[in-house]
Design a protein around this nucleic acid. Structure first.
Lengths: 205, 205
DNA sequence: CCAAAATGCGAGCGTTCGCTCATATTCGCA
DNA sequence: TGCGAATATGAGCGAACGCTCGCATTTTGG
């Protein structure tokens, strides 16, 4: 029988001591997750690395899924905030500059904790918490469509929904691929030039 | 202690009966893998679904990793053969037609067993067998560079290595994304038109 | 038809895992 | 200073897992 899945946090840390414990647990979870992958990450090992007892882990996280879910949420929220803020900022820039800025940002976002990002995106089972990731994607898509619509006059593409989907997929993949498989390209300004060129030349005539 | 990893097949099936057993095991493994994900796929469950004893599984696959590895190898080989053959065939076509044909093929390759493809690509731990996947990527990259070089006269891109990487990343992502998240787009001819446009407009002036 | 080889079987071993709970320690506050 | 609440501990439970091994059954080839 599968272990029952509790998703509601058991207890909220109120003293500084327990907040430090929670931070240590999350940091250790990220470290073990990156090193061993999701299914070889054991809660006992996380506790050991965090320097706390296994009991303390379960004081604040009702299950392994909830523990990893908290990491997903934290990582996702950080990316969400950074990307959406930047999109707001470049809304007024001309198209080429805006595309370049967004690509640069997305590459940088991927490059911060690439290994953790990879594990969280690829290996964590799609349960509960991960709905937020999809929601982020939907939100991002909407912002892109809105931006394209505002610049519609200069665009050659007609179906903005389709264009946003294709451009977002391409950019995400180029950033992800470069960070994971071709890190040396990140220092090459030609990479950003070319990625920008692909998107811009696709969007405008 | 981690279980010892044997990677050499234990026994090769020589009679029809045992070949059928092996086929049933592989089919069941694919089915369970898609339904439950890698780490929740148990060898006992695979045996049960295949309608054979757990002992029979270990007659032909020395470990769980080897079993899944066989699936990876089979899936990868099928894609490899299809894609490389098509690339050979379109080598003589003009650029736009060639790009369109390749994108169409890659989309179709993704659409055959998308769920299995996703699990095999995302969740299977990178051990031993998966080196072949990377080798396939390297091989594919080389073919693309060669093709671009043959059409160099018409291209605006200079760094063919970079262009091949970016184009391959983008195409793979658009195909993957469409199959997994936007299956309704697969029937829309505009999808293929637009994806082709992005790559072609990037490559040529 | 029969012996040897190939194949199939499944109870259960040893281990790991997620997680609980009774107990101990530390903190905030009157 | 003392007392209740908050926090920390870790031995160990029950379940699930990967996998072995001794034996039963089927097929092959002479």
């Amino acid at each position: 029988m599968a272990p029952k899945l509790r998703t509601v946090p058991r207890k909220r840390p109120v003293q500084d001591r327990s907040r430090a414990t929670v931070d240590a647990i999350l940091a250790a979870a990220a470290q073990v997750l990156v090193k061993d992958g999701f299914d070889r990450t054991s809660t006992n090992r996380v506790a050991e690395v965090a320097g706390v007892s296994i009991g303390s882990v379960y004081q604040y996280f009702p299950s392994k899924e909830a523990l990893v879910g908290a990491l997903v949420e934290r990582h996702n929220e950080a990316m969400r905030a950074a990307v959406l803020a930047e999109l707001q900022r470049v809304q007024v820039l001309p198209l080429e500059a805006a595309v370049r800025a967004v690509i640069e940002l997305i590459v940088r976002a991927h490059a911060i904790e690439p290994a953790l990002h990879r594990v969280l995106m690829e290996q964590v089972p799609r349960t509960g918490r991960l709905a937020r990731v999809d929601q982020f994607a939907v939100e991002l898509h909407a912002v892109i469509v809105r931006y394209l619509d505002a610049h519609r006059a200069r665009l050659r593409v007609q179906d903005l929904d389709l264009a946003a989907f294709l451009a977002a997929s391409a950019v995400e993949a180029m950033a992800h691929g470069a960070v994971i498989y071709q890190p040396h390209r990140l220092d090459d300004p030609a990479f950003l030039d070319e990625a920008t060129a692909m998107v811009v030349r696709y969007l405008i005539a």
